[in-house]
Simulated scan of single mutants.
Amino acid sequence: MFKVPTTAGLSILAVIAAGTLLSGCSASVEVKKSTPPKLSADKLSSTLAEKLAAATGQSKPDVSCPEDLVGKVGTTSRCTLTADDGSTLGVTVKVTSVSGNQIHYDFKADDKASPASN
């Protein structure tokens, strides 16, 4: 989770967005067999937090995904990264391929963060 002063929150989110955009991030996760396979919202949130931390060299951010990711090519989902100051950054996840139980996906952070609501 980010431990930053309020004024630096948006700057940290901007660094994450820039780092994510430049690195062309992708991931794959093996999931339990179902038709089609699904990645739980909790597992997707956790995996994205780990990937964003690795891409930026920062501690794991607070990432929340509202729904399971269905393992069907082209399926998208929107997740939200929240900094300690309450500012947020959207992250789009898109399934690129499915191999058996393994879902491969790309993710991209939005260009701009939203300030904390008062």
Score class of each variant (00 low, 15 high):
residue 57 G to T: 03
residue 113 A to V: 02
residue 78 R to W: 08
residue 65 C to S: 04
residue 109 A to H: 07
residue 62 D to G: 05
residue 44 L to C: 02
residue 88 T to H: 11
residue 1 M to Y: 12
residue 63 V to C: 01
residue 34 S to E: 02
residue 108 K to V: 09
residue 60 K to V: 03
residue 14 A to N: 11
residue 10 L to T: 08
residue 75 T to K: 12
residue 69 L to G: 00
residue 78 R to Y: 06
residue 89 L to P: 01
residue 116 A to P: 03
residue 9 G to F: 11
residue 55 A to M: 09
residue 80 T to P: 02
residue 69 L to E: 01
residue 94 K to I: 09
residue 68 D to N: 05
residue 20 T to Y: 12
residue 82 T to C: 03
residue 108 K to A: 06
residue 72 K to F: 09
residue 110 D to K: 09
residue 105 Y to L: 05
residue 42 D to C: 02
residue 91 V to F: 01
residue 2 F to G: 08
residue 51 K to M: 07
residue 110 D to H: 06
residue 3 K to L: 12
residue 35 T to A: 02
residue 23 S to K: 15
residue 30 E to T: 08
residue 37 P to E: 01
residue 92 T to H: 06
residue 9 G to K: 11
residue 48 L to T: 00
residue 106 D to Q: 12
residue 92 T to C: 06
residue 38 K to A: 01
residue 65 C to Y: 08
residue 114 S to N: 14
residue 33 K to V: 12
residue 14 A to I: 07
residue 7 T to N: 14
residue 71 G to Y: 00
residue 24 G to R: 10
residue 14 A to W: 10
residue 66 P to Y: 13
residue 61 P to K: 05
residue 105 Y to H: 00
residue 97 S to W: 15
residue 2 F to C: 10
residue 7 T to Q: 14
residue 67 E to L: 03
residue 75 T to L: 10
residue 48 L to Q: 02
residue 73 V to H: 03
residue 2 F to N: 14
residue 58 Q to T: 07
residue 33 K to T: 11
residue 94 K to E: 05
residue 56 T to I: 06
residue 79 C to H: 10
residue 92 T to I: 11
residue 44 L to Y: 00
residue 9 G to W: 13
residue 25 C to L: 15
residue 27 A to C: 06
residue 17 A to N: 09
residue 67 E to W: 13
residue 68 D to E: 08
residue 12 I to T: 03
residue 112 K to P: 00
residue 50 E to H: 09
residue 105 Y to D: 02
residue 51 K to Y: 11
residue 79 C to R: 15
residue 115 P to N: 13
residue 51 K to L: 09
residue 21 L to P: 06
residue 46 S to I: 01
residue 99 S to F: 15
residue 15 V to K: 12
residue 48 L to W: 04
residue 85 D to S: 04
residue 46 S to Y: 15
residue 2 F to H: 12
residue 54 A to C: 10
residue 29 V to W: 15
residue 24 G to S: 10
residue 44 L to D: 01
residue 111 D to C: 09
residue 65 C to T: 02
residue 100 G to R: 01
residue 51 K to H: 11
residue 59 S to C: 12
residue 118 N to Q: 15
residue 90 G to P: 03
residue 101 N to Y: 07
residue 86 G to L: 04
residue 35 T to V: 15
residue 50 E to A: 05
residue 81 L to E: 06
residue 17 A to Y: 04
residue 54 A to D: 13
residue 3 K to E: 14
residue 107 F to C: 02
residue 68 D to K: 04
residue 33 K to Q: 11
residue 39 L to G: 00
residue 89 L to A: 01
residue 47 T to L: 04
residue 71 G to R: 00
residue 94 K to Y: 02
residue 45 S to H: 10
residue 77 S to P: 09
residue 54 A to P: 15
residue 18 A to D: 14
residue 9 G to I: 09
residue 47 T to V: 04
residue 45 S to M: 07
residue 105 Y to S: 01
residue 19 G to W: 14
residue 46 S to W: 14
residue 61 P to T: 00
residue 45 S to D: 06
residue 115 P to H: 15
residue 82 T to S: 05
residue 75 T to N: 08
residue 57 G to S: 03
residue 76 T to S: 07
residue 66 P to W: 14
residue 46 S to A: 11
residue 65 C to P: 00
residue 58 Q to P: 10
residue 3 K to N: 15
residue 46 S to F: 09
residue 37 P to S: 00
residue 105 Y to V: 05
residue 10 L to R: 15
residue 102 Q to H: 07
residue 59 S to Q: 15
residue 58 Q to G: 08
residue 57 G to D: 02
residue 4 V to R: 12
residue 68 D to V: 01
residue 63 V to E: 02
residue 70 V to N: 03
residue 103 I to R: 00
